[in-house]
């Protein structure tokens, strides 16, 4: 299977500030990939690199086997719904569809019209008069009707109310089935991604902390509780992601491929939220704890 996105030592610098460093990823096709991390972690930068809106400073990136944004053909293969789902305020819904039809050779007009109709958007309404949810749906329609193989969405639901958020994700998941899309979407909210993603990338402080299939990640991470002990004395194949201690007890979150046999530990399952939070507050980074919003 070909990779939908492959990055090797990818980095992007703005002036002196590295927005993304040493990012190495290999995402197979057919996934709904969640890119999660606090605000300012470099999510938008990574997504912009993937759709070719930014040239990398270091390393390389290929998307669907091509250089991002390099040619009209490459642009046609990748759909992008930008942060805050921008639309032309002065243009009507119908004009947005016309824009899509004019600028995309693979435009699926029937799909676009069907979606707009089902969403109950009047073709004559100006995009500037739409609600946030409707605007997001219009932007999603533009992204879907160009018939991409990969759809990238940057915080698409961050500004939406819970109902609009649910409706947006419903439409997105339906399209993913229907069009056999690969999807990459970012969010600073774990709850947005919990249901829809089956592949996860945690990005903190410009670095990819962990990436992989969600199920495997959840299966290889465990919460260990037991009598207090030094995390450094764990077996070599158990990597401590986070640790907290009281005077008697230690609670560790470890990653390991092997089962845990030590009877002193009570082994607990962790949720996606636990996993993400653990990586965001990794011991190495405790001096600068990023703020993660966990909302429902």
């Amino acid at each position: 299977m070909t990779a939908v996105l492959r990055a090797e030592g990818l980095g992007k610098r703005y002036g002196k500030h590295w927005a993304l460093t040493d990012c190495t990823l290999d995402i197979p096709t057919g996934h709904v990939v969640g890119l999660v991390g606090p605000n300012g972690a470099g999510k938008t930068t990574l997504l912009n690199l993937a759709c070719g809106q930014l040239p990398p400073t270091a390393g390389g990136i290929t998307v669907l086997g091509g250089r991002p944004g390099g040619s009209p053909a490459q642009l046609a293969k990748v759909g992008y719904v930008a942060q805050d789902t921008p639309t032309y305020a002065g243009l009507s819904v119908a004009e947005h569809l016309k824009l899509g039809a004019r600028l995309n050779p693979g435009w699926d007009d029937a799909l676009a019209r069907h979606r707009i109709e089902r969403l109950g958007l009047r073709p004559s309404s100006r995009a500037g008069k739409l609600s946030g949810g409707q605007r997001a749906q219009l932007a999603l329609t533009l992204g879907l009707a160009k018939r991409p193989e990969l759809l990238i969405l940057d915080e698409p639901v961050a500004a939406l109310d819970p109902l609009a958020r649910r409706e947006f994700l419903q439409g997105l998941m339906e399209a993913a089935v229907e069009q056999q899309l690969s999807v990459v979407l970012s969010s600073h909210l774990v709850s947005d991604l919990e249901r829809v993603c089956d592949y996860l990338i945690v990005l903190v402080d410009s670095k990819v902390q962990v990436a992989g299939e969600l199920e495997k990640l959840l299966a290889t991470h465990h919460r260990l509780t037991g009598p207090r002990r030094d995390p450094a004395r764990l077996p070599a194949d158990q990597h401590v992601i986070s640790a907290s201690h009281t005077d008697r007890q230690s609670t560790l979150l470890v990653r390991t491929q092997a089962p845990i046999h030590d009877p002193a530990w009570t082994v607990g399952q962790i949720s996606l939220e636990d996993l993400v939070l653990a990586y965001m507050s990794k011991p190495a980074d405790t001096h600068r704890r990023p703020t993660l919003e966990v909302q429902r």
Partner: peptide
């Protein structure tokens, strides 16, 4: 498709 459109969950699930 019906399930994911209703629940907004991952198709692979």
């Amino acid at each position: 498709k019906e399930v994911v459109a209703q629940l907004a969950i991952n198709p692979n699930t």
